[in-house]
Amino acid sequence: MSLPVSIPSSRARSVLPGFNLTLGYTLVYLSLIVLLPVAAVFLRTADLSFAEFLAVISKPALVASYKLSFGASLLAASINAVFGLLLAWALVRYSFPGKKIVDALVDLPFALPTAVAGISLATLYSKNGWLGAFFEGVLGIKIAFTPLGVLVALVFIGLPFVVRTLQPILEDLETELEEAAASLGASRWQTFVHVVLPVLTPALLTGFALAFARAVGEYGSVIFIAGNIPLVSEITPLLIITRLEQYDYTGATAIAVVMLVFSFVMLLLINGLQSWSARRTGRTL
């Protein structure tokens, strides 16, 4: 009796089929949606000589806007990392009335059209607004039409990123770890710092990176509250739009290149930090 035996082909068979198809699709899709527009930005900028490029991107108003955009974004992402962690902790660890509503509210900055958010923030924090009247009238702190206003808007839109990336990790966190730490004599604070936080760090960094990336590119919610005073509260995306409105496409793409490179370097750094923390804990990515 003979059984049909298939002769193994020269190509090694994978247990998971579809590698060629999915990789091909991924590459084409990524090229069309991401790489092509980015390449166009660089190509357009290449119309300028290097000296011209430097001259365009180093105007004082622009340099001030870089500082504001990236500085405020980093600060906003840091604020979100701290308070997002608190919020995620409260939402995962405790049950309280209205928890579902709070949970849904977290997504609001995602769902709200950015212009709507911008206008409501501007009204709220302006001199006559509810919060603005308090801060300006009582404490003497001007929020609307200052860099502080930009920060407020960026904190608002970045919040969901940290909360949503932390929530699943917190839900999976074994309570046994904390019990073990307590039985070994660690205080609540020691347990948090030495046991809980290291587990959360990778997710916290991811949330931070996402919130930062979103904040750098944010336009709609910021421009209303920022007031757009040159050298004080102009963000870089606004200056790109200004160039576009003046039909200065090359100038616009030159600024875009600066933003792209800077954002890319920042995200690379954060990724590096993540894999370093992963390696340090003996996990492989």
């Binding site: 074994e174 046994e176 770890l177 019990e179 073990a180 730490a181 039985s183 030495h194 046991v195 290291p198 587990v199 340090r280 804990t281 003996g282 996990r283």
Partner: peptide
Amino acid sequence: QVGFVFQHYALFKHMT
């Protein structure tokens, strides 16, 4: 001052 050993070890994964 009790030593507690868990079924699933509960070792701290990020520590040696």
